[in-house]
Design a protein around this nucleic acid. Structure first.
Lengths: 141, 141
DNA sequence: CCGGATCCCAGTCGATACTG
DNA sequence: CAGTATCGACTGGGATCCGG
């Protein structure tokens, strides 16, 4: 996500390996797998958390920084910029004496909040099962 | 996800920077954010795709390799091992003349398939909106 | 208060070659 | 067929310092 490349356009361009001649239908294109797209948007280390917090209402930069625990200013900035760029959050600057910037979610998010929470709930429910599976696998060898 | 570290336990161990003395409450611990957990499980480059394909039924290694397009044997192996380790897929070896290994999803997956598909559908629907937002942002500067 | 700029390591992934 | 082994490149992300 770092510098203007979200991995969503990393495309390899069917290298010389083109076994058959591609008609040339692949331009810059996106990895045709919607799941990969979502992951490209919020699949990094912090974006999901940011969305969770912002889901409770608009927050200022420092509020987010304190709420998220472990995030660095740098990564928080980058994550917010990325989310803003993709239209998932808005950034509004209030011209106050001490700078004041508020972030908020856009309507785009409303539709994924539910599945996102379902995922979180799933993880929460199955934490023991997963831990068990992991332990079993690890002790296997 | 590469070598037995899924990022879920990346823990930094409060390095010498420990401004205050940590009571030592932080062991190996997990990022307490369920969303991060899910991402640690299937948030890498290929796991999600593997699950999508396996969702249609059991597949052999080479079938997966062909179905996924762009994945290397190495990464496919690593992804499958990781998924297997976390109890999301099973690996069964049939003692045949030409080796025969089948992968399949476990019941654990059944509960997330739906939210996962919701996410994918969302990405699909909002692709234009996101592209527009991105273009607007980029042309902004 | 809200960042931007730099430095740098560790983890991730791909290419390639070898094996039971 | 179904992997392993090795190498190297790229990049995410933490630390730190600087600026409006």
């Amino acid at each position: 996500m770092s510098q203007r490349n979200t991995g969503i356009t990393e495309q390899v361009t069917p290298p010389p390996s083109a076994r058959a001649a591609r008609i040339a239908a692949d331009a810059v294109e996106i990895p045709d797998c919607p799941l990969r797209e979502v992951l490209a948007l919020i699949g990094d280390k912090w974006s999901a958390q940011v969305l969770v917090v912002l889901g409770e209402g608009p927050r200022r930069f420092t509020e987010l920084e304190r709420a998220i625990e472990g995030v660095s200013r740098r990564m928080l900035t980058l994550s917010l910029r990325n989310l803003e760029r993709n239209g998932l959050v808005t950034r509004t600057v209030h011209p106050d004496a001490p700078p004041r910037v508020e972030y908020a979610t856009t309507p785009l998010i409303d539709e994924i909040r539910e599945p996102l929470e379902a995922l979180a709930a799933w993880a929460d429910r199955n934490r023991p099962a997963i831990a068990a599976a992991r332990h079993a696998y690890d002790s296997g060898r």
